Simulated scan of single mutants.
Amino acid sequence: MARPPRFDTDQILDAAVRLAASAGPGGVTVSAVAQAIGAPSGSMYHRFSGRTALLAEVWLRTVERFQEGYFAALHSDADPRRAARAAARHVVAWSRAHPQEAALLLHGPVEFGRGDWAEEYTRRADSGNERVYAAIGGLAASLGVTDPQGRDRVALALIDLPLSVVRRHLRAGGVLPAHAEDLAEECAASLLTS
Rank of each mutant, 00 (worst) to 15 (best):
A2C: 10
R3N: 13
P5K: 15
R6W: 05
R6A: 12
R6C: 11
T9Q: 15
T9V: 15
I12W: 03
I12V: 05
D14C: 12
D14T: 12
A16R: 01
A16S: 07
A16Q: 01
V17G: 06
L19T: 02
A21G: 01
P25Y: 01
V33H: 07
A34W: 02
Q35E: 13
A36T: 00
A36Q: 05
G38N: 04
G38Q: 03
A39P: 08
P40K: 15
S41C: 03
G42W: 12
G42V: 13
G42S: 14
H46M: 10
G50H: 06
A53M: 04
A53W: 05
L54S: 07
L54Y: 06
L54N: 05
L55E: 10
L55G: 08
A56Y: 12
E57A: 14
V58P: 12
V58G: 11
W59I: 11
L60A: 12
V63I: 08
F66C: 01
Q67S: 08
E68A: 15
G69Y: 03
Y70P: 02
F71K: 03
A72M: 01
A73P: 07
L74R: 08
S76K: 06
D79L: 10
R82K: 15
R82M: 13
A83Q: 06
A86H: 07
A88M: 11
R89L: 05
W94F: 00
W94H: 00
W94D: 02
W94K: 03
A97L: 09
E101T: 07
E101C: 08
E101F: 04
H107D: 06
P109C: 09
V110R: 12
F112Q: 03
G113S: 15
G115D: 06
D116P: 03
E119V: 14
R123C: 10
A125E: 14
S127F: 09
N129T: 14
Y133E: 15
Y133K: 14
A134H: 04
A135D: 09
G138T: 02
A141L: 01
G144M: 10
T146F: 05
G150L: 12
R151E: 08
L156S: 02
A157Y: 02
A157K: 03
L161A: 09
L163G: 11
L163S: 05
L163M: 07
S164T: 02
V165G: 10
R167I: 02
R167A: 06
L170R: 08
R171F: 09
A172H: 14
G173E: 10
G173M: 07
L176V: 07
P177Y: 15
A178S: 15
H179G: 13
H179E: 15
A180T: 11
L183P: 06
A184Q: 00
A188S: 01
A189G: 00
L191S: 03
L192I: 01
L192M: 00
T193G: 07
S194T: 09
